[in-house]
């Protein structure tokens, strides 16, 4: 079962701020999910290969060629930036002490 301390770590790893009033609701709902998926533990999976992809294809790759995105694409990318300076994305300092 997820407890408060573990929940705080999950929220931090997920980079989601959770205010105190919401914490218990999250913990309750997450624990419901944990309970629901615990059924998987009863399956004997010795020697079973995990499925990561549906396809039997292999070696899907491209040749090493350069194709720049068009200026109109770059313009949209840039206009979507919350803040920018010159050609950079502008962001808050990593650590602000």
């Amino acid at each position: 079962m997820i407890k408060k301390c573990e929940f705080n770590n999950i929220a931090f790893l997920s980079r989601i701020y959770v205010n105190e009033q919401e914490v218990n609701k999250y913990i309750t709902d997450l624990n419901k999910m944990v309970t629901a998926v615990n059924i998987l533990q009863e399956v004997n999976t010795d020697n079973v290969i995990p499925t990561t992809h549906m396809t039997s294809m292999r070696n899907i790759w491209r040749q090493d060629t350069v194709k720049s995105s068009t200026n109109s694409v770059k313009k949209i990318l840039f206009n979507n930036a919350p803040e920018a300076e010159n050609c950079f994305y502008k962001i808050r300092k990593v650590l602000n002490i």
């Binding site: 997920s14 990318l77 919350p82 994305y89």
Partner: peptide, 21 residues
């Protein structure tokens, strides 16, 4: 960071992530 909603709450970059989300 690059697009979408950005919160101005908090102090450091982790706050930008955590509050924006």
């Amino acid at each position: 960071i690059r697009y979408g909603y950005r919160s101005h709450k908090g102090f450091d970059l982790n706050d930008v992530y955590s509050y924006s989300r």
